[in-house]
């Protein structure tokens, strides 16, 4: 039962993480390959502050705020870039963040990581046990879902999609593409920060090794598998992917196979991605009004 609770918490946190990426990738067409950086900033900020005795409510806000501020700063130079090269710029940014976490030992304890992060306490409620934490994580996930749902269904959401589909046309119609992209990027970063905060206080130990490119790719996978540019897609993606991964543990295969099974599983992963892109690039849930794939 605890395992199921644990996985549900992981799914809830990854849903937030994926929802936050989806607003950038799915709705605005920003290929953010450094999304994990904002997750890391949220996690580290909140963890370091609570370890200094700052109450969770404040450190959570700081974590989210720092992530958003970082999004704003990195957005200034990189949002001018087109498509894939925006991706590479953000990827580089994420690497820089990870290296700071790794090398500024005086602040972050470097590769030793931060042990003993406390479980949160909000308005005199302690979220200590698994079911309690699940309530917190689910609550945050639902909140994220509602906020992002509200934003994307609003006129602002339609502008984002217009920019994604044809930036020049949107600009001609008088929309400030850069400002809109910046808003989308900052909102994505804020929620990634939230996911990071929840992650740090759940796992209670973080180290720079948790925040690598692999993590970004996993969450990108979740978004694409579930259906980018849809509200429900990232959630469905998180559920399916994490359950699929973990269900392999229950196949009761002999441990000798593990050395083969590990890479084999990753191979299957890669293959699914490729096949998905060839046969169903829109993911499990298809975006409304997007029946045909268009070339940009």
């Amino acid at each position: 039962m605890d395992l199921l609770l644990h996985l549900s918490i992981v799914i809830a946190i990854y849903s937030i993480f994926a929802l936050s990426l989806n607003i950038e990738v799915g709705y605005t067409g920003l290929f953010n390959f450094g999304h994990v950086a904002f997750f890391a900033i949220g996690a580290y900020t909140s963890a370091l502050l609570t370890l200094q005795g700052v109450p969770f409510s404040l450190s959570m806000i700081a974590g989210i705020g720092f992530a958003g501020a970082a999004g704003f700063l990195i957005g200034i130079p990189s949002l001018k870039l087109q498509g894939d090269y925006f991706g590479i710029a953000t990827l580089g940014f994420a690497e820089i963040v990870r290296m700071i976490l790794q090398n500024q030992v005086a602040w972050t304890k470097g590769p030793m990581g931060l042990p003993g992060i406390t479980r949160p306490e909000l308005f005199s409620w302690r979220f200590d046990t698994l079911p309690e934490y699940l309530v917190l994580a689910l609550g945050a996930a639902i909140l994220t879902f509602l906020v992002i749902g509200f934003l994307t269904l609003s006129p602002f959401g339609r502008v984002l999609k217009a920019i994604r589909d044809d930036e020049t046309a949107a600009a001609i119609l008088g929309k400030n593409a850069f400002a809109c992209k910046m808003k989308s990027f900052v909102i994505g970063s804020l929620f990634a920060g939230l996911a990071g905060v929840l992650w740090a206080h759940y796992i209670t130990f973080i180290s720079p090794g948790d925040f690598t490119l692999t993590e970004t790719i996993l969450v990108l996978l979740i978004v694409v598998l579930g259906g980018k540019g849809t509200l429900l897609g990232p959630v469905v993606g998180a559920v399916v992917l994490i359950f699929f991964q973990e269900s392999l543990r229950f196949l009761r295969l002999p441990p000798e196979w593990s050395s083969i099974l590990g890479p084999l599983q990753q191979m299957v992963f890669g293959l699914i991605l490729v096949l998905l892109m060839i046969f169903r690039p829109e993911g499990l849930i298809r975006e409304k009004g997007k029946e045909k794939i268009d070339r940009d």
């Binding site: 395992l3 644990h6 996985l7 796992i203 130990f205 180290s207 090794g209 948790d210 543990r249």
Partner: peptide, 16 residues
Amino acid sequence: EDNKSNPKDCVTAVRK
């Protein structure tokens, strides 16, 4: 139980 050499899966493996 395979911990996949990363902290997240270590936690999952131990929980399992």
